[in-house]
Design a protein around this nucleic acid. Structure first.
Lengths: 82, 82
DNA sequence: TTCATATATCGGGAAAAGTCGATATATTTG
DNA sequence: CAAATATATCGACTTTTCCCGATATATGAA
């Protein structure tokens, strides 16, 4: 999912109308993942708590997008502390 | 354990006689970890299969030491592919 | 306000990872 | 070769993670 969210336009072509400013909505990710709605929702909330993605609620949809700084920080953490 | 192995002399002062050229032996790591011998042995073999440490058998002892390039590679992998 | 849609949360069963004791293997010493 | 020591492997049990269906919550439309 994290890799998918690197290129939303490419990986979620069905989400045309909404645009991608806020990321991709749960339903799109679920369809691509082939897991149930509840599982995907939980995954995303875990990733969010971990800081790797951010969510924006727009109407009935929740959009998720990557927080690039977290990946940069993880890379540096491994480089410096592990 | 991986962090401990960054500074063997500091973290395993009891292993004086053997030197640290080949790393630290299982018994030392086990003592510090507070886990059973079998658990520590399995851990180390997993870390070895994953490429993070290398082993050298010297007599009845097996010494493990870090493979720094693996950490560098992991950091870069996260930076470039995640 | 009622219905439809999107997402979140909850409880539980299945799968995987963690950990142990017992035992096997390898090496050194007598 | 027999005993002692260090490590590895095996089988079982416990804990955690994964994933689901059911249900709850939030929003928009009729």
């Amino acid at each position: 999912m994290l890799e998918w969210l690197k290129e939303p336009e490419l990986n979620f072509p069905d989400q045309i109308t909404a645009g991608f400013e806020h990321g991709v909505c749960v339903g799109q990710i679920q369809a691509k993942a082939g897991l149930t709605q509840s599982t995907v929702s939980e995954y995303l909330s875990i990733l969010q708590r971990a800081g790797f993605i951010e969510s924006t609620r727009v109407g009935q949809w929740t959009y998720y997008k990557r927080n690039e700084s977290a990946f940069e920080a993880l890379s540096k953490l491994i480089q410096n502390n592990l």
